[in-house]
Amino acid sequence: MVKIKYLLIGVPVVIIGIVVAFIVFPSEEKKVKKQFNLLSEWVSKSPEENAFTMLQKMKNIGTLFDEPSELKVPSQSLSGSYKREEISTYAGSARSYFSQLHLKFYDFHILFPEKESAKVTLTSRLTGKSTAGEQVDETRELECVLKKKERKWLFSTIEVVEVLKK
């Protein structure tokens, strides 16, 4: 009887302990995913977004990137090495073409080839509406490299993978 009582108290305590440990000490994979969630949140735009939020998001986007970062997006003539400010400015100008924007990521494949480096292959989907009223729906496969600097994962390379070659 006493044993059952201990079990009834012990098992939930252990389960709660495991859950708390997962939340307080997230795995490196979770930390990497979090950076993508932040990028998604800051790239996305609602029709009611005001100028202050827009500037804040532009600034925030830059903080997710390493200094400098490499972008390989041939379809947007965006290839080369860019500084944080340049990425923020580019993101701001690209967002201004849209009245509504949603960026979502799917199918994460995360590898850690080196201790402070993560290679992520994933699908990105950008949907929204341009200021001219055109619907936008672009899906791309991305290969990203993130480097860990000062306990923070930063985007070092983002490359668009060519799935269909015309």
Binding site: Y106, D107, F108, H109, L164
Partner: peptide, 11 residues
Amino acid sequence: AVRFAGSKVML
């Protein structure tokens, strides 16, 4: 159906 990085979004 052509996949991207996985099967969540396909063409």
